[in-house]
């Protein structure tokens, strides 16, 4: 068996019906030798976010960047198109900034939303189907699932830990019985 950091891990998920119990389990897990992998929940939870001490999302930076690009793109496009068609219309100058504010504004919103979506996808890593590997379908319904990793021989301990916290353990990819593990 490898002793390095990439030694084989066993994944155990604790499924909780109560948000408070899940948040408490996360805090206790942080003090344990086991590694917290992910927390799945059916709704966004402030209590769980606080227990995980999550940092603020950086999606806003993408949104801001998109908005700035859009602002200049909108004005740029309107000015470029006008200078290609050098006609005075309605007594307005060829490069009439006041009407171009509307184009600039709409492009600002459009590109900010593009940036927002791009930020959301890059930050979450979606689309990805890898997370479905250690996932319990009940987490999209009414359970809060805490996925933790341990060395294969410790999975019973980890499962008991979740049980003590009030959760229902689910053991993923159990090693084969020939290696002395539970089936």
């Amino acid at each position: 068996m490898k002793k390095s950091a990439d030694a084989p891990h066993q994944h155990v998920m604790g499924l909780f019906r109560s948000e408070d119990q899940a948040a408490a389990a996360i805090r206790k897990l942080a003090q344990s030798p086991w590694k917290l992998r992910r927390v799945h929940s059916p709704v966004p939870s402030h209590k769980i976010a606080a227990a995980l001490a999550l940092k603020k999302s950086r999606v806003g930076l993408f949104t801001l960047a998109g908005g700035i690009i859009g602002f200049f793109s909108g004005f740029g496009l309107a000015i470029y198109a006008s200078t290609q068609w050098h006609l005075i219309v309605g007594g307005k100058p060829v490069v009439a900034l006041v009407p171009f504010v509307i184009v600039g504004f709409e492009f600002t919103i459009l590109f900010a939303v593009f940036g927002n979506v791009l930020g959301f996808l890059t930050q979450t890593g979606l689309p990805t189907f890898k997370r479905l590997q250690h996932y319990d379908a009940r987490c999209s319904g009414e359970h809060f699932g805490i996925l933790a990793a341990c060395r294969p021989e410790q999975h019973r301990e980890l499962a008991e830990f979740f049980t003590r916290q009030g959760g229902e353990p689910r053991i993923f990819d159990a090693p084969s019985p020939t290696r002395g593990q539970a089936p």
């Binding site: 929940s41 966004p44 927002n116």
Partner: peptide, 27 residues
């Protein structure tokens, strides 16, 4: 599975989703 883009409700997903949704609303 394809339509949901592999969404699992993981805490990282919710963290960015909530923020992105707020910006969507604000825009």
């Amino acid at each position: 599975t394809v339509l949901s883009l592999g969404w699992t409700g993981a805490h990282e997903e919710w963290r960015h989703y909530s923020r992105a949704y707020l910006f969507f609303a604000a825009l």
